[in-house]
C-alpha cells in the first residue's frame, strides 16, 4: 500500500547559542510519510542538510517513546504539537496536511535559557527536585514493603502525579512561565504516601522557595499546563500543593 508523501514548509528557530540572537529559517521538505514521527521528519531534514554541507538542526530527543521527557518542541504554537496526551516524539505526520506550513520553536521561558537552536537548559527542574523532591532515607534498613498498608486510592493518585516526565511543557505553555504543575506533581506524590508525609511540611516550603528563586512565574489558574501536559497531570495537584503549603506556613 503506497501512501502519498506530504510536502511541507518548515519554519524553524535557529540560534547559535545563548548569547546570540535567533531567527526563523525556512526549509521546504518533500515526500514525508504520514506514518513517520515528527522527530523522524526532522531526522530526514537533517540528513538533507548534511548532504548540503550545512549544520543540522539541534533538538533534544532520546527515548522516542514518550517517557524520557527529553523532546521539547513548540509546534504551531503548542508544546508537543497539535494533539493531547503526547510528547513530540509521539506526534505523527498523519496529523498534518499536505502543503502545510509548520512553525517549530524551542520552549520559551525565563527559567529555560536556550542552548542552541531548539535545545533549552532545563536544569532548573533538577534544582527544584534537589531542594526536597525525595524522602530522606538512606540505602538499607527499610522495613518490609508491606509493613505499612497504603490505600489503593492514594497509591493510584500518587502514581497519577508521579507519571510526570519533567519535560517542561507546563512551563512552556504557561503565559507566566510557572512551574506549579511540575512542582505540585512531586509534592503530591509524596504527600499522598505515608513514607512522604514525614517531611511533607519542609518539602513543600523548600521546593516552592527554590521554584520562586529560579525565576519561574506565578500561577493564575489558566490551566494551560494541564491542557498541554503529555501525561495529563491534573491541576488538582496544584490545589493540593497550595493546601500543603498553607498548612506548612501556618504551622511554622
Amino acid at each position: 500500500m503506497e501512501k502519498r508523501g506530504l510536502n511541507l514548509t518548515l519554519k524553524i528557530w535557529r540560534q547559535e547559542n545563548a548569547k546570540t540572537k535567533g531567527a526563523f529559517v525556512t526549509y521546504p521538505i518533500q515526500n514525508i510519510s504520514p506514518d513517520c514521527s515528527f522527530l523522524e521528519m526532522l531526522d530526514q531534514l537533517n540528513e538533507q542538510l548534511v548532504d548540503k554541507i550545512e549544520r543540522p538542526i539541534c533538538f533534544d530527543h532520546d527515548c522516542r517513546e514518550g517517557i524520557c521527557g527529553m523532546c521539547s518542541l513548540y509546534i504551531n504554537g503548542r508544546p508537543h504539537g497539535n494533539d493531547t496526551g503526547i510528547t513530540t516524539c509521539q506526534l505523527h505526520m498523519r496529523r498534518f496536511k499536505d502543503g502545510e506550513t509548520i512553525w517549530i520553536e524551542p520552549w520559551r521561558s525565563k527559567a529555560f535559557p536556550i542552548i542552541k537552536d531548539l535545545v533549552v537548559d532545563r536544569s532548573a527542574f533538577d534544582k527544584v527536585i534537589q531542594a526536597g523532591g525525595y524522602t530522606s532515607v538512606n540505602t538499607g534498613g527499610a522495613p518490609d514493603g508491606n509493613a505499612i498498608p497504603i490505600k489503593k486510592e492514594n497509591a493510584d493518585l500518587a502514581m497519577d502525579a508521579a507519571a510526570c516526565i519533567g519535560c517542561g511543557a507546563c512551563v512552556a505553555a504557561c503565559k507566566n512561565g510557572a512551574a506549579m504543575l511540575f512542582v505540585s506533581a512531586k509534592v503530591s506524590q509524596f504527600a499522598l504516601l505515608p513514607q512522604g508525609r514525614v517531611e511533607a511540611k519542609e518539602r513543600v516550603s523548600n521546593m516552592v522557595r527554590e521554584m520562586d528563586q529560579l525565576g519561574f512565574g506565578n500561577c493564575t489558574n489558566t490551566k494551560a499546563c494541564e491542557a498541554e501536559c503529555p501525561k495529563e497531570i491534573k491541576i488538582s495537584n496544584i490545589a493540593r500543593m497550595n493546601r500543603e503549603y498553607l498548612i506548612s506556613a501556618l504551622q511554622k
Partner: peptide, 21 residues
Amino acid sequence: NIIDQCVAQGVPFARDYGGQL
C-alpha cells in the same frame, strides 16, 4: 531489599484494595 528500599523512597507501586503490594 530492593522492593523495601523503593517503597521507602515513595515509589508508588501498584497496590490491591487491602493496601498491599
